[in-house]
Amino acid sequence: MDLTTIFQAVITGVLMAGIYALVAIGLTLIFGVVRIVNFAQGEFVMLGMYVTWWLWKAGGIDPYLSLLITMPVLFVFGVLVQRFLFRPILSAPDMAQIFLTVGLSVVLMNAALFFFTADFRSVKTTYSEWALRVAGITLSVPRIFAFAGALVLAGLLTLFLSKTDIGKALRAVAQDREVSMLLGIDPERMYLLAVGLGAALAGAAGGLIVPFFYVFPTVGVVFVLIAFVVVILGTLGSIQGALLASLIVGVAESLGILFAGADLGLVVVFAILVATLILKPSGLMGQA
């Protein structure tokens, strides 16, 4: 196996990392603020993909342009999920919360199966097959767009959380819910915002990959698994940690596919997860 092939796999992994980071950041935002582990995060990605596909199929709208619709739609969906599903079980035991989000994931998958069938759908754009060739390495243009789009969104979220009052209020609720109330913050509203944003990010991730990724009802499963690995590896609640961990996971998966075969890419990812849990349970950015 020559060096170019390995390098090609590394680049492919890096380009996918932005998407993994977006899904994981949404997951960690919801957990950080609302304290709910959302096993349906992958299905939020799936919904984003179907919305994008449908807008393209029915309205001929370009997948990147439709982010302007997909993200608000998923935001509203997230707000409704928080209001009607998460809120009633916030003080319930962890097990009930896990059952709820796993149940939501199953319901969404089957709803997609019912409405869109099990067919693999794809969006063919003029640029779907575009690629740059640099020193023998092929760079898929839509993958570059997906990576760049994910970085832009992660950057915007970071700015929002660090520069705006509402962003700071979100962080305050994550750090100390009781104190945030004493400062005049209504945590329930921040919960709505956190789940809305988490869903919008997942939806954006879905929209960004549609030009090169098949859409099918169970497509989210892989994303949620990877997001959990990223979140644990990258220290829960840290955006920079999620970006770094996504790079590691993306490259590991890609090299795993190259060396061990397409079915074993994820095995390498989970091996890294297990090693992290044994060697540094607090994650890469963890203090202890």
Binding site: A169, E178, V179, L183
Partner: peptide, 30 residues
């Protein structure tokens, strides 16, 4: 609690409870 705060009652809780990951100024701004 957030409406009680809006009336002009500030509660400095036991153990200080500053927001540790934010800067001094961010704590004050909040």
């Amino acid at each position: 609690p957030y409406e009680v705060a809006a009336l002009g009652i500030a509660h400095v809780p036991e153990g200080r409870r500053v927001l540790p990951d934010m800067t001094v100024e961010e704590n004050l701004e909040l």
